[in-house]
Amino acid sequence: MTLLDVRDLSIRFKTPEGVVQAVEGLSFALAQGGTLGIVGESGAGKSQTAMAVLGLLARNAKVSGSIRFEDRDLLKLPESQLSKLRGNRIAMVFQDPMTSLNPYLRVEVQLGEVLERHRGLSRSAARAESLRLMQAVHIPDAAQRLRSYPHELSGGQRQRVMIAIALACQPALLLADEPTTALDVTVQAQILRLFAELKKDFGVAMILITHDLGVVAEVCEHTMVMYAGRAVESGATQTLLNAPAHPYTRALLEARPRIDTPLTDRLLALRGQPPNLLQLPPGCAFAPRCPIAVDVCTQSVPALRSIETAHLAACIRV
């Protein structure tokens, strides 16, 4: 059963410097309880895609296409309807737990208000439920931590609070934007394990946005690689990791630190700069950095096409 169906999504921002093409012609679907990893460098359009699903794009954004969620087009819903979905059916965990919680409010307020708003709980019922949620995300001394201010918690604990807030109303879809990037390596592993556990316990569908293929490998069934606002490859995570088709995916994989190859070789894998979104190169946006590019690559944008069952790539060379 399809939960989320994104079709031909385009996002543009009007800025004084010109029109920024953040996302272009993006389509993907996510089944109920499924997990999708979106991978790419910063500026690839990953976060903007998530913000579009939440309906929280900046005011200068122009969106087209459709985002169907539980058989409703989110792009056509009025704000009043959208805000009833946010934090309720669709929840989001952000990258930086240090700044994502309000420093002036106690944890119990920030957690409880979602329950009061979407589940109509009374203050005392919300408090009891908050305690349960804090325990579900494994925060020690949960009752005491509820009375804390964010600055009194560690980075990992704050991210756990963020996750508790996101799960408070048992959402059908959880968007996680680089949820582990700002954390220590050991804490990263803990949080990822928590995600895997929650996916099982809550049965929530998840979109995990990251630049780290290792994270995707651990949590996601499906993966989509984005470059300069477009999907360049998508398929089952195992397929992508074992047999990457697009040269960009291959470069990303080669850029991962490994013990068996010397460092110098790997750093060469992704030469050049991410493209300027104000002025994308003609044809395939990756062509200027591509090791196997030919003349045709700079002439037209390659379409995403099936190269084997459930494995798509946008490259004319494969």
């Binding site: 929280l56 934090g87 952000f94 700044t99 994502s100 002036y104 708003r117 807030i165």
Partner: peptide
Amino acid sequence: NSNYIRTARAKGLATRTVILRHALRP
């Protein structure tokens, strides 16, 4: 423009709550 207001919006709070409870004091 801060991250915690983005969080408050992502929680689906009413605009009034976002401004009065989350934004006004800071």
